[in-house]
Design a protein around this nucleic acid. Structure first.
Lengths: 337, 337
DNA sequence: TGTTAGTATGAAATCGATTTCACAAATGGG
DNA sequence: CCCATTTGTGAAATCGATTTCATACTAACA
């Protein structure tokens, strides 16, 4: 392995001191034209590239941020990661990808890791657990929450307008005559999902429909097969009892996909025998059988805004206001209702 | 911002020297029981966490690797990233995510960045361009290519069995009576796509069908709208001329999605009026209208294998054989043929 | 009991950059 | 023409860990 060329080598080659070389690298002080070109030529000749790790040790800045998300294979998070990454690279930062898999232990493990690696900041889609521990690990590292928030940790946040989107989507359902809604939700209590439920309830109340008439189907694991099974069994039972809802509202894209499959298993015609609305739109909902109505979240933009927020704060560390940015959602009506 | 606690503080608190603290941290030499517990208690009391950046400077290892892929929002790459990340975290490494967006300039920019950050290794899905420059930038950093390869850069690679998968899929088409195939491809010459074409050609030849009867539709930009437009126009023309193919074979998932939309634009019944086969399966192809037959690549496993390969090589730097791992593909027949 | 081998430890060097400090040379104002 | 700035430069300190080296102490053996 050929030894890395260091700033020392450059200084020697250019016939000057390391201080001067460092000055031309960082532009932190004036250097005479002659010396500058000598250094630049030496750098080019030797193919020198300053070591970020040495630099970081001295300057206490690594120019890297950690991105903790549930699961990058979920299109919502990959779009979000993309947005964040674009903003990061544009401003000279790199991004460490961490999949927490909604596992609180992995979440803690990863937080410790990025903290030990001295990232300058963290963008964090929390599982919702370990509030106190997280606050303690993160300490004073700048942090922006995405999608969800944790009360114990003081930080800025970028979230979607969950309640508003759910409200407008539910209104759309109701206006089309779907008055009996079934809500497909995930078991763990999460602020995000709670807001969506609130939005639906608000729509029901606004149309004088009792919210008790909209049962919530709770799935414990969000894995496709499980969702499909649970929804199918729940629906079968309700159909037999004769009090099935006329439309289902799935609270995220994975629940939506599982619900779609369950409906197809039961041979229910969408949208005639059962309406379907999903929170969190996917490109593919446009080409499913039938195309599915959904509430679209600006995932990419959320990532970008979160990263921008974080880097702005890093670059001018004056006020660190923990503001919450709420981005609008869009209801897209397709053939499923 | 409260000052970070350093190894010096721990040494003072434990009433010993930094050398001894370092020894209990790394376990590199024996330390008496008494001192060890004193140090451990001091560490716990102060909440000390050793700085990875200082450690890296000294040991020349950062325990981080760069992952360069085309676009993380493409499900193939996000599954691949997931596999790679799992293996990385399991072995104590972290991963920097870099989207090259198939832009050779961004690719170079990112390679320079991860090299300057002194990553221990790189997992690289190349655009195919800048062979010589890449070799020069990467220098002696261990590297594993994924999905595609570059001749100029000596490195191991993990790829899918493109030719075999395409061959078997084409056979399936031919057996079902689709003898006139249209191949939807991307314009830039890429080894991966070339192999897929080769597989299709081999299937045709094996069934005594001249390969000239299988025209290739070349799309310049892989963006959904563009694919849709090009395929639609091409097909319209062929239908009018009366020599349209009986089935289309799209060479990756994005081309497949665009092609599906084009077929729906034209109102062609799948699979009766036109068959459809896509290389690179997506979860969603199961619920499209109609469900689409596809060749599945083991994306997650590819990522995992690439990472395992890389880390194995980092951990025992003996033989660095640049072997090519070919993982099997699976043809999944659904209602589109 | 004297010599030797082994164990535990701390002082100091090191990794590769940035930054402070001291100082010489150049510049400028009166 | 002298003193006060300004400018350019290199030596040395620094960041926070690991590792080498020297040394004091123990245990073991003849």
């Amino acid at each position: 392995m050929p030894k890395q060329v260091t700033i020392q080598d450059v200084a020697r080659e250019a016939g000057t001191s390391v201080s001067t070389v460092s000055r031309v690298l960082t532009g932190s002080a004036r250097v005479s034209k002659a010396k500058r070109v000598a250094v630049e030529e030496a750098i080019a000749r030797l193919g020198f590239r300053p070591s970020h790790v040495a630099r970081s040790l001295r300057t206490h800045a690594t120019f890297s941020v950690g991105l903790l998300v549930n699961d990058i294979t979920n299109p919502f998070f990959s779009a979000l990661a993309r947005g964040a990454e674009e903003e990061a690279i544009r401003r000279g930062y790199s991004m460490m990808l961490c999949n927490t898999d909604n596992d609180p232990d992995r979440e803690l493990q990863y937080l410790r890791m990025v903290r030990d690696k001295r990232v300058d900041g963290i963008i964090f889609g929390p599982t919702g657990a370990n509030g106190a521990q997280i606050a303690q690990i993160v300490g004073s590292i700048p942090l922006v929450m995405i999608d969800r928030r944790i009360d114990e940790v003081p930080a800025a946040a970028v979230v979607a307008d969950n309640e508003g989107g759910a409200y407008r989507a539910a209104c759309a359902l109701i206006q089309r005559g779907y008055h009996r809604l079934g809500i497909v939700a995930w078991l763990p209590p999460m602020e995000t999902l709670a807001h969506r439920v609130t939005g639906i309830h608000r729509a029901l109340s606004g149309h004088d429909i009792p919210i008790e008439s909209a049962p919530i189907i709770r799935v414990s694991r969000i894995e496709p097969k499980e969702v499909r099974r649970v929804v199918r069994e729940w629906l079968t039972e309700r159909l037999e009892a004769g009090d099935a809802p006329s439309a289902l509202f799935a609270l995220n894209n994975q629940l939506g996909l599982g619900t779609l499959r369950a409906l197809r298993d039961l041979g229910l015609k969408i949208p005639d025998e059962m309406g379907l609305m999903v929170f969190d739109d996917l490109e593919f909902f446009e080409v499913t059988l039938p195309p599915i109505s959904a509430v679209a979240m600006p995932a990419r933009q959320m990532g970008q805004r979160a990263m921008r927020h974080l880097l702005d704060r890093l670059e001018k560390p004056g006020e660190h206001l923990h503001e919450v940015t709420v981005l609008p959602t869009e209801v897209r009506i397709r053939q499923s209702i």
